[in-house]
Simulated scan of single mutants.
Amino acid sequence: MHQLQKHLLATSLALMGLASLATYSLVASAEPNSKAQKISTPKHRYSDAHLHIVDFFQEGEPLSKLITAMDKGKIDHAMISGIPLMKKWHEDEPKRPRYYAGDDAGMYWFSATDSYVAEAYRKLPKQDRERLHPFLCGFNPTDKNADKHLRQMLETYPDVWQGIGEVLTRHDDLTALTQDDTPRANNEAMYRVYRVAAEFKLPVLLHSNITSKRERNPLYVGEIEDALAAHPDVNFIWAHAGTSATLHRYQDKLDFLLPALSKLLAAHDNLYIDLSWAVLTPYLLDKNQEAADGWVALINKYPKRFMIGSDGLGSYDKIAANLDEYAPFLDALNKEAAQGVARDNFIALLPKKSVRKILASARQYTDSL
C-alpha cells in the first residue's frame, strides 16, 4: 500500500475512533423539525436510490439501524453515501447549527466522509452488505485532483464502492455557503471524475440544479447536457430531476421542467432520473394525491429510467414512510414502470463487475506489456 494510502487509512480509523463517541447520534434529518411519519405495511417493495448515512456534521446512526428500518419498510436495497460537505460552527455563532441553513457560516469539502462510509459498511455481516450499495462522494468537484481521490479510495476499499455521488454541483443556497468556486457538471474536474466512472462502470448520482432561484427558464440545463453528450459511456442519475426545495420556495413549480426532461431523455440514453425529495410535490402528486398525467405518461414511456429515494441524512426512522408516499403515484403507472421506479431500476444500474476484478485485470494487462 502506498504511503499516502496508509496515511489516509490511519486518518480514517482515527476519525472513526472519535466518531464512536459522537458520530452515531442523530443531529439532523433532511428537513429539520419535520415530524416522524408512521406507516403500516408498505404497498410496494422498494430500493432507496438516494440515502446519506451522515448529515452535514458527518454524524449519523449506525448501519444496523438502517437494516432494521429497511426490514420494516420492505426496502430490499439502498444506495448509501456520505456527505461531501461539512458545516462550520463559526467562532461568532453562540449555538451549534442543526442544518446547513441554520446560520450564515460556511461549508467546506470533507473527504473523510468516504472513509466513514467504507469502515461502517465493512463492519456489517455479509448478508447486510449485499443489500447496501456505497457510493463515493468525498471530493471537491472544482478540483482536478478529485479523480486522484477516487482512485485512492477505490484501491484502498476495492470491495466497497458501487457508484459515485451524490456529487453536489449547483445547489442554490448550499452552493452559496460553500467556501470555494461554484461547481458545475461540465467543468474539467468533473470530466476527470466521469472518466474514472467510465473505467470502473460506476453510475454517477449528480445534483445539478436546472436553474437558479429567480430565473424562470432552464438556465443551467446546458451544463448537464454537455456532460451527458461528452460521456455517453457513463450512466448519470440526475438527482431530484434537477430541482430542489429552495427552488420551489422561490418559484413554486417549474413549468419548463417536464418538457426539459422529455427532451433530455429522448436525446441521451445514459440519463436516469432520481425523483426523490423535491419532486413528489408539486410535480408527481397534487394536493389531492392525484397523479399528474404528464409525469405518468413520461415515466410509462421510459419505464427503466426513473427511481426514487428517501434522501435521508443520517437517520432512518422516516425512510420507509418517505418512500411509501410515492405509492399513489406508483399505482397510476403501468405495472412494469411501477416496479422499476420503486425497486428494480436502481439495482439494474449497479456495476456487474467489482472494482477489485477491474483493478486485477488492469494489473494483468500492464504486467503483460
Rank of each mutant, 00 (worst) to 15 (best):
T41Y: 07
K352R: 13
H149Y: 14
F200N: 06
F56I: 12
G138L: 13
K88Y: 12
R356P: 11
P32Y: 08
S111P: 05
Q179M: 12
L257W: 07
A30P: 06
S12R: 00
V341N: 03
S64R: 15
K304T: 15
A241W: 01
H2N: 10
F346A: 12
L313N: 11
D293N: 01
P282G: 08
S20T: 13
A112I: 10
M307P: 07
N322D: 15
D103G: 02
Y316A: 00
F110Y: 14
A245D: 10
R96I: 03
F57G: 09
L85S: 07
W295V: 05
N334V: 06
L63I: 09
V221M: 05
H77S: 14
A230W: 09
A189I: 00
T178H: 02
D293F: 04
M190S: 03
V160M: 08
N288C: 10
D159W: 03
E336R: 00
T182N: 03
L26R: 12
E130G: 07
W161E: 05
L202A: 07
A291R: 07
D324E: 10
Q364P: 02
A197V: 01
Y365N: 11
T246K: 02
T169C: 03
F56S: 13
D173S: 06
D344T: 11
D344V: 00
